[in-house]
Design a binder for these strands. Structure first.
Length: 275
DNA sequence: CTGTGTTTAACTGCGG
DNA sequence: CCGCAGTTAAACACAG
């Protein structure tokens, strides 16, 4: 677990026309167990939010768990993602005693100085003890988490690669730097992780690249509350089989092509077959 | 050519 | 220590 810190953005986001920029300026590194969230999140609605359930900071929550920060956020209806945010933007911190600081603030730059008369946030802001400026510190989310956030946050539950980039950069100023590095990682994550599925473009939506969505069966990846790290990597059985058939040179022989990981995969497949 | 997507590999860090 | 998740780099293929 990471130390509990607050990420704060000190500058006021004035330039952005995106109403989301009015969102909270802070986010939490806290990775407290989700049990407390679960108490706030009795429902795990359809896929779309289920993947985030109990692990991600934007886990679907019902209204009474929505801190005022999020209410403010959700009230901003100009963005197509606001609806999702209304559901997703519940915070860990809102229930973890850190002053209602959003773990997943609204889109549109974390640098947005908060202007809401929101008591929780004001409390957080007044709390100099925790308030530290990590203007461009790396957010506590894995790339998997970031991608999931982005996709979950989209109205269609699918985004192009560049939209995912944009979401992340909008949300986290940290990722406006060294773009080549982290964007490569994003692409790697999308390809490598079965929880992300490519959705071909339809003829009415021409353009470069596919859409990326979340595998419908990939829910609860982040169970156990730590959204820095999934508890278990989601594996698509079909893809696993495909990989295995492509990689496996001959019967019984375990390829070392992808090192330990593949060996592990092969073992798990064999076990599954036996069972 | 550039962006997108895939794959391999090496590495770090965490948890059992 | 070991296995796994995640990160980063890099090479490559392909499509717009």
């Amino acid at each position: 677990m990471l130390p509990q810190k607050l990420y704060t953005e000190s500058s006021m986001s004035t330039a952005s026309s995106n109403a989301m920029s009015a969102m909270t300026s802070t986010y939490s590194m806290n990775t407290m167990p989700m049990s407390s969230m679960n108490t706030c999140s009795p429902q795990a609605p359809a896929f779309g939010s289920s993947i985030m359930n109990s692990g991600m900071p934007m886990t679907t929550m019902n209204g009474n768990c929505m801190p005022s920060v999020q209410m403010q956020y959700s009230a901003i209806a100009s963005s197509p993602i606001s609806n999702m945010n209304a559901r997703m933007s519940s915070t860990m911190s809102s229930v973890n005693g850190y002053g209602g600081v959003s773990a997943l603030p609204g889109r549109g730059d974390l640098s947005g100085g908060d202007i809401s008369p929101n008591s929780a946030l004001q409390r957080a802001r007044a709390d100099k003890t925790y308030r530290r400026s990590y203007t461009h510190a790396k957010p506590p989310y894995s790339y998997i988490s970031l991608i999931t956030m982005a996709i979950q946050n989209s109205p269609q539950k699918m985004l192009t690669l560049s939209e995912i980039y944009q979401f992340i950069m909008d949300l986290f100023p940290f990722y406006r730097q060294n773009q080549q590095r982290w964007q490569n990682s994003i692409r790697h994550s999308l390809s490598f992780n079965d929880c992300f599925v490519k959705v071909p473009r339809t003829p009415d939506k021409p353009g470069k690249g596919s859409f990326w969505s979340l595998h419908p069966d990939s829910g609860n990846m982040f169970e156990n509350g730590c959204y820095l790290r999934r508890q278990k990597r989601f594996k698509d059985e079909k893809k696993e089989m495909q990989r295995a058939s492509h990689k496996s040179p001959s019967h019984g022989e375990i390829p070392i092509v992808r090192g330990k990981r593949l060996r592990y995969t092969m073992v798990t497949i064999l076990i599954n077959l036996i069972i």
